[in-house]
Design a protein around this nucleic acid. Structure first.
Lengths: 161, 161
DNA sequence: GCATACACTGGTCGATATGACCAGTGGAAC
DNA sequence: GTTCCACTGGTCATATCGACCAGTGTATGC
């Protein structure tokens, strides 16, 4: 009973299945879940329409691309500089993969990758060169203990614990 | 000339195309890129084999799932507790989407989501309940200025600037 | 009690993409 | 000059897709 914004157990199992084996089609999903093909199709359409599933784009691994160094950089900005223009400047740096405005002492938190530690310094310098950055605090990611995941959350939302 | 670990301009354009419209198939890609279908197939196979493209799994949006609050939590751990067992404990909390060991004052950096700010406190309490956590520093993400992206990096790696 | 709305079933249909082949061509490296 | 490799452009059978359809079951509201 797909209520309002919620997620169904079938929805969750569908997402889990696609997560595990993205190559299989709608038909194969239907077979494995034991439901009609049209049902899977309808569920998937609705999940996409509601924005729960954004897309099925290729997930690129920066490390395999030659950028094995990941760092999280907290920026302190001059108050006069808005976040929007700052984000635009950051967006021009390819190594900046992600940026959020945050609460606390810092104003922005960015995820940055680089080929080497030396090049990381280079990237940070480019960030610092942006007008309005007062200070950058960097922590380097030594290991990815939990790679980005959403499955457990999907199951939780579906009430499957 | 797909050299060693590098990325080709054709590879980059292929990834870009798939990123923009994940639903189109190999055949359509070949048409748009102006190459033979077999070429696209071979390139894609190699990209996946090399790990540059991890998979084509569904990208789930936690906000659309009902978890609009994102926070980054830095954990200080008791030295005696290893990172591995800590990661295993964190992995049992569905709201922990990501975790890295990091340099600096903190020992681990986690990405956490929650339904509300009140529930965020709840999740953090669950994290703190884990044995070995001395302190947790939380910053809440107010806005996603740059959503997770890899395209600019792919182009950079391919030498397309 | 009855009518409506909705989700799912199980079936068909034609159009299309897929993965597998193949011989032939061009360029680069040895 | 020869070998290697990537790409081309073509064919083939199979499987899937997206679209339909009537029928069933359940929950809802009148």
């Amino acid at each position: 009973m797909t209520s309002g914004t919620g997620i169904d157990a079938l929805d969750a199992k569908l997402i889990e299945l696609l997560e595990a084996e993205p190559r299989i089609g709608v038909l194969e999903c239907a077979r494995r879940l034991g439901v009609a093909r049209g049902t899977v199709q309808a569920r998937l359409d609705k999940l996409i329409a509601r924005g729960v599933v954004r897309d099925f784009g290729p997930r690129v691994d920066p490390a395999a691309l030659g950028y094995p160094v990941t760092a999280f950089v907290t920026l302190e900005l001059r108050q006069a500089v808005g976040h929007q223009p700052m984000a635009q400047r950051l967006a021009r740096i390819p190594e900046v993969l992600e940026a959020h405005t945050v609460t606390g002492a810092g104003d922005m938190l960015c995820r940055i990758v680089a080929r080497t530690n030396a090049e990381l310094q280079d990237v940070i310098d480019r960030v610092l060169a942006s007008e309005g950055v007062l200070r950058a605090t960097t922590v380097i990611a030594l290991a990815e203990q939990i790679p980005h995941r959403t499955l457990p959350l999907v199951k939780e939302a579906a009430g499957l614990n």
